[in-house]
Every structure is written in C-alpha cells, then in structure tokens.
C-alpha cells in the first residue's frame, strides 16, 4: 500500500512538472517572453526592470529555475489588468466556480442515478427510451449550446429565471455563496443544470448498463423469489451494487467539471475562474492565464490522486496489481 501511495504520488508530481514545463515553454520559448509577460503599455525603464527581475536575459534553463522557484512561492506574476498578484485574483474567483461545480455534481448524481436505474429496469418502455435518447443528446450536444437553449427558454421566452450573473451572495464559511439567498439561488439554477447535463448523461448510461447487468444476477433473482418488495430489491440490492462504478466515474469526472465550468461560466456570465480565464485571454492578461493553468492543473492532479487513493482503499486489488506491474 505504501509503495503504491509513493508511486502514485510520484506520478502526480511528475504530471504537474510536465505541465509546468509545457506552460513554461509555451510562454517563454515560443515568441518573445517580454511581449508575453510585460504589459504592452509599460515604459522602457519598466521593461528593463521586469526583464531583470524575471531573469529574461539569462539562459533558458536558469529562467525555468526562476519560474519554478517563484511558482513554488505562489508568485506567478502580477495581472496587467488588475495590477495585483494573478494567484490572488484567481483565488478570489475560486469559490464561485467551486459552488457551481458542487451544485452541478449533486444535481447530476441526484438525478442521473434514479433516471439511469429506472431506464435500466424498464429498458424497452417509453420512459426508458426517452431517458436514453435524452442522455445521448445530453453528452453529444455541445455544452454552450445547451446553455443557450436554457437561457432562450427559461430566461427569454418564459422569463422565469435570470440569464446571467451570480445574484445576491451571503457569507458562508468565509466564502461568498449564492445558494443561501433566493435571488442567488435563482441565478444558480440554470448554470448548475447546464454544467450537470453532461455528467448526468454519463451517469444515466452507466447506471442503466449496470442495472441491466445486476438484474440478471442470482442474488437479485433470489431476493425477488424470497418475496421482497420491488422497492427493497431496487434500493438495497441493485442500488448498492451499481454505486461502485458510479462513484469511480464521479471522482474521475470531478476534475473535468472545473474545466467544463469555463464554458458554462462564459455562457451565463458567472463570475468564476473560468470566465476570468476567457476574459484574460481576450485582454491578453497572460500572467493570469499562466496562473489559471497552473492552479487548475494542480486541482485536477490532486483530485485524481485522492480519487485513486480512495479507490485503492475501497478495492485492495488495485493497489496490489499496481505493485506487481
């Protein structure tokens, strides 16, 4: 187990290092880093000062050392637009994205599992087919298009919900959140559904396929033969057994939720870090772009690591086979 943990941790560090090299090369080696890292409106003296501070006049490997050293100290440069450390700006936006991602996750599991089980129990019924058809649309249609349709229907045509923004926020555990006020909640619903749809479709398909498989198992037949109520068979015997793969998928997809939030936040003008990234790309605010990328890579690698470790604790076979391999 310890061997597995160490090896898995090493892989995570390697992933972050590889991405850091790529981002570094992208910024420093392709094109002129002075254009990339220094505000186009800076004066000659400022350019000279920053060049010296960032060590841009030194060889590439030394620059990489400085980049890593600064990054490890949480310094990824100052934003051109806001004039503050890029990392701080992103951390300001982090709670909004996290709130959106968690609500979307709860929605996708809370709706995806029951719908998938239902479709799996009655695969040939109209409801079952409708759920499956919907799930195919859910993950084949682009995310932004689904979001626009939601806006068109619920905000423009029906006028029930606001089309964008975050609404009123309140303090909760030291973060500003929307879900505790009615106004904030009304702003949260559409983006959360938008972000949830893709994962929900995946979970529906997974839950359906597993339900169909589990239904054929002897222990389900036996439970039925014993005269247990249909509800008990589904809730206890089937649900328990389909949750293992579902939990795995949830863990693995959590990281991609942060990436997909970029799209949802742009469509709904949700002031999270994904919207910040797109704004920064349009404003050429490159330190923020670099900081966003490094932070997101860190988040995703950490999530993947935690998921793998939890999973190996739940299923000892994984750790063992990795050790042999």
């Amino acid at each position: 187990m310890i061997v597995y943990l160490i090896r898995r941790f090493g892989q995570s560090v390697l992933s972050i290092a590889a991405m850091a090299v790529l981002v570094f090369l992208g910024v420093y080696a392709i094109g002129n880093p002075i254009d990339v890292l220094i505000n186009p409106e800076a004066t000659q003296a400022e350019i000279a000062a920053t060049t010296a501070r960032l060590g841009l006049d030194r060889p590439l490997y030394e620059q990489f050392g400085i980049f890593v050293w600064n990054a490890l100290h949480g310094d990824l440069g100052n934003s051109f637009v806001y004039g503050r450390p890029a990392v701080d700006i992103i951390l300001d936006r982090l709670p909004a994205t996290m709130e959106l991602a968690f609500v979307a996750l709860i929605l996708s599991v809370g709706l995806g599992v029951p719908l998938g089980v239902w479709a799996g129990l009655r695969p040939d019924s109209i409801a079952g087919r409708t759920i499956m058809g919907g799930s195919i649309l859910g993950f084949s249609l682009p995310n932004f298009w689904q979001g626009m349709l939601l806006i068109l229907i619920f905000a423009v045509l029906l006028g029930w919900l606001p089309a964008g923004g975050r609404g009123e926020t309140t303090e909760f555990l030291g973060m500003r959140v929307s879900f505790l006020t009615l106004d904030g909640l009304s702003h949260l619903i559409l983006p959360a559904i938008n972000l949830a749809l893709f994962k929900m479709s995946l979970i529906i398909r997974l839950a359906r396929a597993n339900t169909r498989e589990v239904c054929l198992q002897d222990y389900v037949k036996f439970a039925r033969a014993k005269g247990l109520s249909g509800r008990r068979v589904v809730l206890v015997h089937i649900l328990k057994n389909i949750m293992i793969p579902v939990v795995t998928i949830i863990g693995l997809e959590l990281g991609s939720m942060v990436a997909f939030a970029i799209v949802t936040e742009t469509v709904f003008a949700w002031p999270g870090m994904g919207k910040l990234l797109i704004d920064s790309i349009n404003l050429l605010d490159r330190p923020v772009i670099v900081a966003y990328l490094m932070l997101t890579v860190l988040i995703i690698v950490t999530i993947n690591f935690v998921v793998d470790v939890i999973y190996s604790l739940l299923d000892p076979r994984i750790g063992l086979s990795e050790m042999k391999g």
């Binding site: 390697l14 992933s15 590889a18 991405m19 790529l22 981002v23 992208g26 910024v27 392709i30 990281g255 991609s256 990436a259 997909f260 970029i262 799209v263 990234l277 790309i281 772009i289 990328l293 997101t296 890579v297 995703i300 690698v301 993947n304």
Partner: peptide, 19 residues
C-alpha cells in the same frame, strides 16, 4: 496517460491561449 488525465477542452484552451 498523462495527457488523457486532463480534460481535452483544457488542453486545447491552453494551446490556443498561447498560440
């Protein structure tokens, strides 16, 4: 494996943001 552990959209965005 390294590449597939990151969402495709994120990698594409990184590249296009830089290029």
């Amino acid at each position: 494996d390294l590449q597939l552990s990151f969402p495709a959209i994120l990698i594409a965005l990184i590249l296009l943001a830089l290029l």
